[in-house]
């Protein structure tokens, strides 16, 4: 069986790692080279199989196991005490806010927008980003948590 010097570069085409120029050149080459056409068919078929398989992956709720094994359930040890104290103070503000007639609470139990609006806690950096929840594939068992730090919730 004869060999072709370009066969080795086809994997990069199939895996999307080749530059558009190189990919176009190699694809054009496969029109006239049976060996490379054959190899590229296989490489792309393999990619299709792995891609389809990955697309239907589901993951059980595994973070809890990792967190308990790694001691990650508690707030980070080096969290400045001043922040903890501030969270406690803020909780007090919220509790007063919740008792007021305007206080609202969303269905998931997180503080309502109106309550938070007047609070200094609106400083964006204070809120823990949890946007990755919504980006996870279906079936990934993480709960989207309220956008307040765990220590804050614990102090309530």
């Amino acid at each position: 069986m004869s060999r072709c010097g370009r066969t080795a570069h086809l994997e990069a085409v199939a895996l999307g790692e080749a530059s558009p120029t190189l990919a176009a050149e190699l694809r054009a080459h496969t029109k006239s080279c049976a060996l490379c056409r054959h190899e590229l068919n296989w490489l792309e078929s393999e990619s299709a199989l792995f891609r389809q398989r990955a697309g239907r992956d589901e993951v059980a709720q595994l973070w809890k196991g990792v967190a308990s094994r790694s001691g990650l359930e508690t707030p980070p040890r080096d969290w400045p005490r001043v922040l903890v104290a501030m969270a406690a103070a803020a909780a007090l503000v919220l509790m007063v806010g919740n008792a007021a007639p305007r206080a609202s609470r969303s269905a998931d139990g997180s503080p309502g927008d109106e309550t938070l609006e007047s609070s200094m806690l609106m400083t964006p950096a204070f809120f823990v980003e949890e946007e990755s929840c919504s980006k996870l594939p279906s079936g990934v068992g993480f709960q989207c948590s309220p956008v307040v730090p765990a220590s804050f919730l614990a102090s309530r």
Partner: peptide, 21 residues
């Protein structure tokens, strides 16, 4: 590495599907 557990959790969420598979 500086102890920010939210950062480690983000790494977990980003890679857990692939690692599990």
């Amino acid at each position: 590495q500086k102890g920010e557990s939210a950062a480690f959790k983000a790494l977990f969420e980003r890679h857990v599907v692939g690692v599990r598979r």
